[in-house]
Each structure stands twice: as structure tokens, then as C-alpha cells.
Design a protein around this nucleic acid. Structure first.
Lengths: 229, 229, 229, 229
DNA sequence: GATGAATGAGATTTCATTCAT
DNA sequence: AATGAATGAAATCTCATTCAT
């Protein structure tokens, strides 16, 4: 059996095992057995547990970003791109729950090296989303000079919400990618639109610090604008 | 030294160790040493590594929910409650990064048993947020009969975004709880408001399923309503 | 059982196993079993196979040098000191064949770190022998300004011969420490004496280089002085 | 490529690897790679690691003995034969440090089987030296009936000193074969000469055995004859 | 109440060795 | 004649866990 094929089998087995058991609880024995090969062969091809895990992360990260990019077709309006990108994202994470667990849970929990690997992927996606937001602003003929920090924070929040919803969709039987995407669009799109119109929600003024855990008390005066309307 | 105090010291040490090393990489030796007691005493008080971890999760989960509940004062309008609850949440996670790592990263990564423990806490918070959304709808005199699934999905997304922003804030030097909360309010509040007015973002109609990875192709026709505009 | 005692038992077992099987072929399992303890305990007390081996080397090296120093009593004339030092050396190596194997065979064969450990001991002994040679020269009222390089080379050769004879004595049933020491004294002492009188054996003059393996052919002209006489 | 050539390449690689890494630390992988062939071929030609090592020992042993024999030309007087034999020995060990390491260090350290192989070579050399000593005695018209045990002990010591000096010369930059040989001749020849004249160094009389480590105490009265004086 | 001493079980990793071609 | 592909067996080391005191 050719080497490349075997290697993919091993990665399949590894992703599944890492995703379900966790990085540390997964044993090379189990992975080898699931792949249908002997342990030494896994080491021969993939060097070490760390390298194997890294290979899993890379493969799954690439698969995910490619799925998202393939979903969001460049020609469409920004909101449609966002919509289809999100749908592709939820569809992919639903189809590859173990890969998603490897990326979202395992890689971030077991050492800086692995975390950096996913962080790179995430940064790429966040940048992509940031571009979409800016494009949307342009399309809406709004001021495209949105503050850098705001937009990147928003993109962070959007991606974070998406990640979280992916978990929720995976854990909720019957939840579809379209539902998850629609929920997120509803949740986020109007907020983004408002932001572009300058109709921001302003926090109440700071009040005197209180004791206790240090969590500040409730605000006294609101300065809200549009929300709830 | 009274038992209760010793036990808290152990939990302190355990949370710190679990949060920094991870559940599996944390050794009982290290925890005992950090707590300043002998290993058998840890076992005497807390039974096993699993039980110890569970105790950590429960303590931190309770501390977090209490911080959030204490932040969001019942008398205020819904958006203000949400604001102050979020601020309390971000302040707490910033103040207790190890506890937050235990809840958000470790507990979800190492077995169903632990994940269920956090899931319970999360469900409580999601329910709380759901109540706030419904209250906001009432306050706005809008139809309070929002579809159950929609609202719970929104609350999920909101909580997910909050969790993600908490990580981001912990990793970004200079980021404050207020900033994180403001970002999230801006991001989400208008969307929630729109939702209540019935101005939802509707996904384009489904088209014929394609093959490949199963990620559906981009929508062709939009049916969007209000957003951006 | 107190820790110090257990530790010596482990070192005993380790020296025996390393001496008989060799450093690499000796397994920690075997050592632990021979010591009558579990493997983790060996690691708890002695850290690693390398550290355990180093501890063996140090203990045996110290025992050997102490035996030699105790044998060669300071007050005696130099030749008597050499004699009794040699006797003590052979007696010790005969009594502790595994320790001797560890020092002479194993430590020098398995890595610079270990080799350096014995090299230090050996240097100490060579220095001691060098002092004896110089003392002998003084006692004989001969010129004490023997060339440094000569004397150290001689001490090297003497120690080397002693080491080799120790192996031979260990492998030859019936050989005693006194016999080995006497052989070496006869072999070496007169040569040393001659050297001090300046009656050196001079090599024949160099001749033209020959080919082949590069080992030079036999000398053509002798320039010998006293030997065979 | 003819089999015999390939085999020699393998042995070259093996000697180098065994000499530098040690028998156990040397891997068949490394040897095969260094020899430029595949591992199965090594097994096809040389059967097993043990057999390969044995073949190395035999080849190097034969090369060394041949070099020594070729160096010591039969027609010369005994001391000249010894001198040139020693020079050839040191030249050979200096030229083939890995082979020497295999013979002197590795073979003696890894099992009786291999040790026996070198012991045979060594015995041959010792016998050769013994012949030289007896020849020297004859040439000196001294009593050729030297006690068997004495002479073989002396030859042992001489060979041992030579081996030790070979190590020293290999480790000392700038040391030449001639220097090493000269040192050894100076060291030993006079002693041998004295022995033949009957002027032996007699050990002091044995005294009452003491306890302790068993290393006998220093002698009280000397019975020495000629040395030094 | 508290601990020094000890271990069973299992982790990753390596290596000599052999098929099938 | 020669090798890519594969493995059984065993090595070092770690860790959660428990006695005996």
C-alpha cells in the first residue's frame, strides 16, 4: 500500500482519536490500532506524537479555511458572502466534528506551539471577515474609515460567536448549518449596520469603583441610542 | 488549621495548576506542593484527581455565575442589565484567568463528565440571557412570543461571543472589561432590536444541493430586508 | 526502611548489573528487581539511568582511590609506598570486580560524560604515582629534575599496566594481588631506576618512510645502552 | 558491484559506527546508510548485528596482529624486534582509531562472546611478546628457564601498558608512535633486563592479614635488592 | 490529622529483524 | 541482487494512588 494513502489513514485515525479522547488521553496505541497499522509505522511516518498532532491541526485547518473560502464567492455582495461563508463554515464543522474538536478545543489547550498553529488559521479568518465588513461599509456608501480597533474587535466577536454556535449546533440534534448561519446573521448584521451609521450603543458613564470581587456595579445612567428602538 | 481553609488552599493550587498546565499535564505532586501539603492529604480531602477537578469546576462556575448575577441588577432596564452583566463577566474572567481557563478550556476538553459540569453552568447563563432578551422585548412592547428556538440560538451566540471576547481580552494587554462589553453590546444589541421588530435577515432560498465536501454553494438570490441599509 | 540504606542497595544492584551486562544492556527493570524494589522507586531516588550510572561511577571511584591511598602509607620509602599502593589496588579490584568493570570498561565506553568522571579519578591516581616517582628520585639522591613529559608518560604507562594486570588477575584463577603487584614492580621499578640514572633506552634513528599500512619498518641501527646488559 | 567489495564497505561503515557510537548505540540503520546500501542487504550478507560485530572484530584483530608481526622483523635482536613491533602497534592504532576502539573498548564491554574474540588476539600477541622475552634472555646468555608464570605476567603487563599508551596517544594531539614506543621501552626494558639477571624486586614479607576492606596493610620490612640504587 | 515510603499500570519511543516484490 | 514497507518486543520514564505509622 502506497505511503501517501497510509499516511492519510493515520491522520484520519489520529484526528478522530484526538478529537474524541483529547490530545493527552489519546494513546499512540489506540491511534495505530484505529488506523489498522502497527505503532512503529506511525512513528516512521509521522515522527512523534507532537508532530502527528501538528499534522492533524494543519490538515484540518487547511480543510476548514478552504471550505470557508470556497463557500464565500468573491462576486457577491458582502452580506451574501458572509452568509455563504458562515453556512460553509457550519456545514464543515458539522461534517467534521472531530476535526473541529481538534482545532477548537484540543489545539488551544495543549501548549503554545499548537495554539499558535490554530491562531494563525483564526487570524486568517478574522482578516477575511474584517475585509467583508469593510466591503459592506463601502457597498453601503458609508464612511469606510471605521476605526481599526472597532472593526477587528467586531470580527473577533463574530468569529467567536460562530465558533461557539458551531459547538452548539454539533451538540444540538436537528440543528442545521443554515439555521446556525441565519441565527448569526440576524444577531450580527443589524449591529454591524448600525455601527456603520454611527448609531453606536454607548456604555453608561463610569461610576465610583466598588469593592467585592471588583466587578463593577450596575451603571446609573444610560446613554443608549437606537437599540430596542 | 481548619479543614475548610486547607481545602480552599488546595482548590486554589489546583485551579492554578489545571489552568496553566492543563488537566492531564497537571500532576497531583505539583498541586500538593503548590498547596503546601502532602499528597495523601489531598487525597484524604478530595478523593481523586477527577473529584478534585470537578470540585474546581464547581467552585469556579459558581463564582462566575454569582459574579454575573451580582453584576446584572434586577431593577434596571434590560439593556442595562445586559451591559452590566457583561461587564461583570469580563471583569471576572480577567481577574481569574486560571479559573476561566479551567471552565472554558480544560473542562470542555477532558471528558463528558467535566463538560457536562460546565454545560450546566452555561445553560444557566444562557437561560438568564434569554430572560433578558424576552424582558427587553416586553419593555419594547413588542411581541413577546419570539420563537423559542430563535431566542435560545441568539442567547447562545451572544454567550459564545462573550466567551470568545473574554479569551481575546485576556490575551490582549490593555484590553478592559468595559471595552469588551462595549464591543459586544454594539455588535449585538441592534441585531436583537431588529429581531424584535421583525426585521430579520432572511437567508436566500435554498438551491439544489451540490456534491463535494457538502458545503453548499453560495446563494443566488438574496431575500434580505433591513440590514446595512 | 530508611532511605539511605535503600539507596545503597540500589547502587549495589546497579554496579553489579552494569558491571556484568554493560551500561546499555542493563535494564532498569533488572536493577530494580535485583535491588528488591520497584522501578519507580529507583527513579524516585536516582532520577534517571544516566544519573544512576554516574552515581555508581562516583561511588566506585571514591572507594578505589580511598583504598589505594589507605594502602600507600605516607611514611614509607617511595618504592614501598608504590608496592603497597599497588597491592591495595589489586586487592580492591579483585574484591570488587563489578565496580572495576564499571570504572574501567563501562564508564569509558558510553559517552564523554561518564568517561570524564573516570578520567578525573585516573588523573588523580596518575598524579599520585608521579609524586611517588619524583620522591623516589629524591630519595635516590638523583637529579630530581626529570623531564615533566617523561615522568607523566611513565606514570601513564605504569597505571595502564596496572589496570591491564587487574583485568588479567581477575580473569586468572589463583592470581593474587601480591603476585600482580610483584610482577608490576619487577617490570617497572628497574626501568624507573635506570631512567633516573640517565641510562635511557634510545630508539634507533629514523629511516626512510615505507609504504604499506604506514607502520614503519624495523630500525637498522640500534642505539641501546644498558638493557639486557 | 562484486559481493566482496560491498561486504568490505559494510564492514568499514560498521567499524566506524561501532567505534564511535558503541556497540549498542550503533543502529543497523545508521550502518546501512553509511555503507550506502539498504538494510536488508546488510542482513543478507552479514546475518545479524552480532555476526556483523564479530566480523568487525575479526577483521580488525587480524589487521592489527598482521601489522605488529610485519613490524617486528624476525632477523633482528630481541630488543630491536620489540621496539619495532611496538612502533608498528602504535602506528596502527593511531591510524585506525575506530578499529582500535572496537577491539579495545567495545568488544570487551559487550558480552563474553565478543570478549573471547579479542582475548584470542591478545593471547596471540602476548605469546609473541613472551617469545621475544625468552629470545632476549637467550641472546643475553642468561638462564632461559624463567618461570612460566613470571614471564607471562610480564608480557601481560607490557601489553597492557602498550594498550593504555595507545589510548593515551590517540587522545593526545601531537603524540607520535615513536614517542609512545620509546616511553614504553624505557619503562620496561631495564626491568626485563634486571629480571633476567635475577635481580628481582622482592616484595616485603607478608604480615598478619588485617580486616577491613581486605586491602593489606603496608609492608614493614623491605627485602628489595637492586632497584633505584 | 498528616506523611514518608512505595508501587501497578501504562505512556512514548526505538530497534533488530523480516516479508513481498 | 536488492529494497520499500512493516512489525514484535522491549526500553526508559511518569503518575495516580495507597499503606504503615
Amino acid at each position: 500500500m502506497p505511503r501517501a494513502v497510509r499516511e492519510q489513514q493515520m491522520l484520519d485515525a489520529a484526528v478522530r482519536t484526538f478529537g474524541q479522547r483529547g490530545y493527552m488521553a489519546a494513546s499512540m496505541d489506540e491511534i495505530a490500532e484505529l488506523a489498522g497499522v502497527s505503532k512503529p509505522l506511525v512513528y516512521l511516518y509521522l515522527n512523534s506524537k507532537e508532530d502527528l498532532f501538528t499534522a492533524c491541526i494543519r490538515r484540518e485547518a487547511q480543510a476548514l479555511t478552504e471550505a470557508v473560502r470556497a463557500g464565500a464567492r468573491p462576486g457577491l455582495p458582502a452580506d451574501r458572502q458572509l452568509w455563504s461563508g458562515l453556512t460553509a463554515f457550519f456545514a464543515h464543522t458539522a461534517r467534521h466534528p472531530d476535526g473541529w474538536a481538534v482545532l477548537h478545543l484540543q489545539a488551544r489547550t495543549h501548549g503554545e506551539v499548537f495554539a499558535a498553529e490554530v491562531a494563525a488559521m483564526r487570524a486568517e479568518i478574522v482578516a477575511f471577515v474584517t475585509q467583508l465588513i469593510l466591503a459592506a461599509a463601502r457597498e453601503a456608501h458609508r464612511d469606510p474609515d471605521l476605526p481599526e480597533r472597532e472593526v477587528s474587535g467586531l470580527a473577533e466577536a463574530l468569529v467567536g460567536a460562530a465558533e461557539s454556535l458551531a459547538d452548539w449546533a454539533n451538540a444540538t440534534p436537528g440543528a442545521t448549518a443554515r439555521q446556525a448561519a441565519a441565527t448569526l446573521m440576524n444577531f450580527a448584521w443589524a449591529g454591524l449596520g448600525n455601527l456603520m451609521t454611527g448609531a453606536v450603543w454607548s456604555p453608561p458613564e463610569e461610576e465610583g469603583g466598588d469593592a467585592g470581587d471588583g466587578d463593577e456595579g450596575g451603571p446609573r445612567q444610560a446613554g443608549r441610542t437606537s437599540p430596542v428602538r
